[in-house]
Design a protein around this nucleic acid. Structure first.
Lengths: 106, 106
DNA sequence: TTTTGACTTGACAAATATTGGCAAATATAT
DNA sequence: ATATATTTGCCAATATTTGTCAAGTCAAAA
């Protein structure tokens, strides 16, 4: 299953769950995650916490990175979506991330 | 005065204030901003709020956009700095921002 | 149509995070 | 040393996020 990379975290998680034919309740039980919270996450009403993303990306392990990237990119886009200078800021942020990464002790 | 685009918001604000030869207290008075808070902002100990950035970027109006971009990009970089997939996520976030921007009613 | 099961929605309190600003400490300059 | 500028630590107030529950919708089965 190939997932378009720019879907929201919610859409991706819903597609993954439905592809497995699982219920909210079932995934929730596996991850000790209240099904109503998962419902909100899958409808992008709530952003999952870091721990929830960890659990979900481990559960859908074939698409682990897609899930994480969707989550991070949603958070990033959300942060600047109303700003005129959003795209310029994203470019600069990339430079900053590269700089930080490069100078990080292993 | 040209400012390298990838400095932190704090460094930029400190340079701008010192270039004008102003004291924390003086800028603070103009902006109704407690000097100790400004001190923290200039040392990147605290992120300014949206309102504070508005006031500061208006005050340093020749570098208005540089200030805003530094602020936004700091927030973006901060959000993903510890993530292995940070750069991939930034690319995807850019696509998402472009998509959001394109489909936004004026 | 009544019931059943899956999911959604709204409201709320508890937990977390952020903020402003004081008082004290430190640094800088005269 | 004195005076001025900045930094630091702390904390209460405020704001945001989170988990949970009860009630709601919706579709399909009985």
């Amino acid at each position: 299953m190939k997932i378009a990379v720019s879907k929201t975290i919610g859409i991706i998680l819903r597609e993954l769950r439905e592809a497995k034919g699982l219920l909210l309740r079932e995934v929730g039980a596996k991850l000790s995650l209240d099904p109503t919270i998962l419902s909100k996450i899958e409808r992008d009403e709530r952003m999952p916490t870091k721990e929830q993303v960890k659990a979900l990306s481990d559960f859908y392990k074939e698409q682990k990175n897609d899930v994480i990237i969707a989550w991070l990119s949603d958070k990033l886009a959300y942060e600047v979506q109303d700003e005129d200078l959003a795209l310029e800021a994203m470019k600069v942020a990339e430079e900053k991330v590269k700089y930080i990464t490069k100078n990080k002790k292993k």
